[in-house]
């Protein structure tokens, strides 16, 4: 007998008390949110909450996006910037940095040696201060936002969902998804919070006003 048959048989034997007519699909509690945890200004709330988790947050009009990216790169002194395929050219600032295009996939070694990566995002969550990547055009495959030490992420105001349920309902579950809430952190040593263990240690979020 295969492991599959053994396990399934054991599960069924364990559940003989469950009436046969009980519907496995229900009764299901309704989805959605009984109460709204956001205030009137969800963009403001998103900015505050991401900043609380030690991300650097700025709000700019669309015309200032590239300049804000340039400021973030200048602040850390980044020299090599990874740009994913599909990133709009008008958000990439002129400057002393070299651009590493991932159209022909970069090696993990090249990504590891790069200083920063610039991406767009798929959605964001105000209440939790989270940006969500679905790794589509402009965001790059997952390794891009993992190995460089600085991640600069553009979020359009209209991409910010109030809370977790609304954000999840905007996503395509068949794409790889990464939820990012502040830079990586650990509290494993005497519960002292240390920012930045393995992921990017610097997270810059640029909230771009809807045009």
């Amino acid at each position: 007998m295969s492991g599959r048959d053994t396990v399934l048989r054991a599960v069924r034997k364990a559940l003989t008390d469950v009436p046969r007519f009980e519907n496995p699909g229900g009764p299901r509690p309704p989805h959605g949110h009984p109460t709204d945890h956001t205030g009137p200004d969800i963009v403001q709330l998103f900015s505050e909450r991401t900043a609380e988790y030690r991300a650097t947050v700025v709000r700019v009009p669309a015309a200032r996006a590239a300049a804000a990216v340039g400021d973030a790169l200048a602040r850390t002194g980044a020299r090599a910037l990874v740009v994913p395929p599909g990133l709009p050219a008008d958000v990439i600032p002129e400057g002393p940095w070299t651009l590493l295009d991932d159209t022909l996939p970069l090696t993990p070694g090249q990504l590891d040696a790069a200083d920063a990566v610039l991406t767009t995002s798929a959605a964001a969550i105000a209440v939790t201060g989270t940006v969500i990547l679905d790794h589509g055009p402009g965001q790059g495959r997952r390794a891009l936002t993992l190995l460089p030490d600085q991640h600069i992420c553009l979020v359009r105001e209209d991409q910010i969902a109030p809370d977790v349920p609304e954000a999840l309902s905007r996503l395509d579950p068949y794409r790889p998804l990464t939820l990012v809430s502040g830079p990586s952190a650990t509290s494993d040593i005497e519960l002292d919070r240390v920012e930045g263990v393995h992921g990017p240690r610097t997270l810059d979020i640029i909230v771009v006003a809807a045009t």
Binding site: T178, S181, G182, G199
Partner: peptide, 8 residues
């Protein structure tokens, strides 16, 4: 409110 990284 949310952990730093969630992968799906």
């Amino acid at each position: 409110r949310m952990n730093p990284y969630t992968s799906l």
